[in-house]
Structure formats: C-alpha cells, structure tokens
C-alpha cells in the first residue's frame, strides 16, 4: 500500500498488521517520532494525520493509508523552520529532547486549529505529552510564543 509522508510517497507492505510508529522508525528510517511507552500515555510518538495530532504507536498502518502523514522531519519547509520549531528553539525548551517531537507536533496541530490558544487550551492540548526532564514551563511558553510567531507569518497550517 501507499503511504504519503511529508509529501513523499512510500510503498509498504500492509501485512503483517502493525502500527505506524514502527513502520516510520524501523522501516522508513524516519526516527523523528519517538517511542516512549507504546500505549498511548506519553505522546512522544505524535505525528499528524491530515493535520490532526495522533499517537502513531496507537495508529494501525491501514488507518494512515490515503492520508497525509506529517512527522517532525516534515514540519519545517526545507531550511525554514515551522513557527513551533522556531519558538521551541527561541525558548530553549528541549532538555534531553526525547519528548520534543511529540510536544512540537501536538503544539503545531493545536495552533493550526486554534491560532490563539489560551493558557488553559494549551494545557488541555499538551497535558498528555509527558516530559520526564520536566521542561513543562518552557514548553508552555514556547507554545504560546509559537502562536504569536505563526500569526505573524501565516505559516500555521
């Protein structure tokens, strides 16, 4: 079957049944989406399906067929970082960084859907993305900043 990931088409077998995360990481070499729990708790594996944040460790491959998959590797437009990436860099949000692909993908989907999120809306969107290093204060700041940057550049989508 065909998978469209970051604008590129990949041919993958749809048998045996498996989840999107491991196909990305182990078969296609896209290791930007991370594995933290495999059970939907941590959000490290978050990617977009048609712009909506999903947990790729809980996403059957078939569910991704025919839809636009975006991973952290596809968030920037070439050299130009996505506003969320610019904000996370500006705020120096990552520590170890393992959770950060998921944090940024979740944030990008939030801002695309809600260009001006309140603090509560940011928390509601991000509270299921765990960060063991405890970078929450900066993640929160970075998401708010990303909304401002996106609004200035019209790049949110």
């Amino acid at each position: 079957m065909n998978l469209t990931i970051n604008g590129r088409t990949y041919q993958v077998a749809d048998d045996p049944p498996r989840v999107l995360l491991w196909v990305l990481r182990d078969e296609l070499g896209l290791t930007g989406a991370k594995f933290g729990c495999g059970a939907g708790y941590c959000g490290a594996c978050t990617v977009h399906l048609d712009g909506v944040a999903v947990r790729s460790c809980q996403t059957p491959l078939r569910q991704a067929a025919g839809r636009a998959v975006t991973t952290i590797e596809g968030l920037a437009r070439g050299e130009a970082l996505h506003p969320v990436q610019r904000a996370f860099l500006e705020v120096q949000a990552p520590q170890c960084g393992w959770c950060m692909s998921g944090q940024m993908m979740t944030a990008a989907a939030l801002i695309a859907a809600n260009p001006n999120p309140s603090d509560e809306e940011i928390t509601a969107a991000l509270e299921r993305n765990l960060c063991r290093c405890g970078a929450y204060a900066r993640i929160r700041r970075a998401v708010a900043r990303a909304a401002v940057l996106a609004c200035g550049s019209g790049e949110a989508a």
């Binding site: 990481r25 290791t31 930007g32 989406a33 991370k34 594995f35 991973t71 952290i72 590797e73 968030l75 920037a76 970082l81 990436q85 996370f88 860099l89 990552p94 960084g97 393992w98 950060m100 692909s101 940024m104």
Partner: peptide, 10 residues
C-alpha cells in the same frame, strides 16, 4: 533536536 534529526540510542 528541533528537527527530529538528533540520533539517540533508539
């Protein structure tokens, strides 16, 4: 790390 390009053990 921002681009998802940093390589970890996994």
């Amino acid at each position: 790390k921002i681009r998802g390009a940093a390589i970890y053990g996994y």
